[in-house]
Design a protein around this nucleic acid. Sequence first.
DNA 1: TCGTTAATTAACGTATCGGTTAAATTGAGG
DNA 2: CCTCAATTTAACCGATACGTTAATTAACGA
Lengths: 112, 112
Amino acid sequence: MQKHESPLPALFAALGDPVRFAITERLLTQGAQSAGALQDVAEISAPAVSRHLKVLRNAGLVTQTVDGPRRIYAVNPQAVGQLSRWIGGHEAFWAPSLDRLAALLDEKDSTP
Amino acid sequence: MQKHESPLPALFAALGDPVRFAITERLLTQGAQSAGALQDVAEISAPAVSRHLKVLRNAGLVTQTVDGPRRIYAVNPQAVGQLSRWIGGHEAFWAPSLDRLAALLDEKDSTP
DNA sequence: TCGTTAATTAACGTATCGGTTAAATTGAGG
DNA sequence: CCTCAATTTAACCGATACGTTAATTAACGA
């Protein structure tokens, strides 16, 4: 039997860099784009962007498709789904606390 | 006006290390624990655990309370809430794709 | 086929990260 | 006051991460 190494830390690590986070948000909000179009997410060289894209791809967070001479990158919905499920799986833990906070704020107003 | 530096990359980076991810899951599933009780999340020394906890704290992902000589760590629900809101904010993007995947799988069964 | 555009890979320097052991700190108690 | 237990801080070290510029690969049109 094999050790189930969770892919989540890798996903988190990929998003943990500001440039890669910016790239990911761009792809999420504006849809798929070529590497060149992503050039202006930060003031860094093209090779730097390229390597960030490689990290994102290795983590499974983005996919690459080839269109002529350019490579088109898009967020992999399944990866985001994994993140969502992880957080959702712990929602029972943190959501009540937020409710409780809201309740406390309410209480402050209604029952002194 | 000040530049709104998103705290999300820092949160992601904090979770991007396997040890810190394990610590976080422990705190999520088993509740608050002392640094000593977290010792066995990995086969590393106590100072190493301590520094990971410091990173988590600096990222705002965990809180520290003092109980006599020991420090009790707990996940900060607001931080998890931030992650949840980020993903939720992009749900419109990725959730439909998952539906489409399910549809494709269905299709494979019913309409060949 | 030659040149141009798009992107990646190669090679390299520096900074940060994550681990260790040893020393310092802090609180509880005899 | 002295000691013990819990934890953090200090000092150090090797590996990795991220940036750069230069060179390479790949696709396309004149």
